[in-house]
């Protein structure tokens, strides 16, 4: 046991997971006891296309260090085309966030099917490692609420 471990930076990571694929993939990685860090907190959405860019902005505003969106593989969307919309929306949003100073490594879209428990765990391990390396995120601020 290392003593420094307690001082270690523990990032807050929000994962939006599609109910039909990656949420089930996450369950599968649980069933197979494939570990990934406890920093990852999953929010279940019916489809990756339900994720409003606003949710991601809100997460960064409230102190998230990284946000990952997991959906069905292209062509496999339960609702036929939802993941394509998600992909386009996130491409735009992530490039804007990058422009604002939130590194593009802090945001990610990943396709994980219901059968890919191992991929889910590997993805999360990798993502947490990347964010931990990047360190604490600068916080977006909602200046509308700020007292002058």
């Amino acid at each position: 046991m290392q003593v420094e471990e307690t001082k270690e930076f523990k990032p807050t990571i929000v994962a939006f997971c599609c109910n039909w694929c990656s949420y089930a993939g996450a369950d599968l990685s649980g069933t197979n006891r494939l570990n990934y860090p406890a920093n990852v907190k999953i929010i279940r959405v019916p489809c990756s296309c339900r994720v409003n860019p606003m949710f991601i902005l809100r997460a960064f505003q409230r102190g998230a260090d990284g946000v990952i969106l997991c959906g069905c593989h292209p062509g496999d969307c339960h609702y036929t085309t939802g993941n394509y919309y998600a992909r386009r929306r996130m491409t735009l949003l992530f490039s804007m966030l990058d422009f604002l100073g939130i590194e593009k490594e802090r945001t990610r879209v990943e396709w994980v099917s219901a059968a890919e428990g191992a991929k889910f765990a590997a993805t999360m391990n990798d993502f947490v490692a990347t964010i931990t390396k990047l360190g604490e995120n600068r916080r977006l601020e909602d200046i509308r609420c700020k007292k002058q």
Binding site: T12, V14, F55
Partner: peptide, 11 residues
């Protein structure tokens, strides 16, 4: 609802 979840997780 989803915003509330995000808030609770990032608190």
């Amino acid at each position: 609802q989803i915003m509330a979840e995000v808030d609770a997780i990032c608190k």
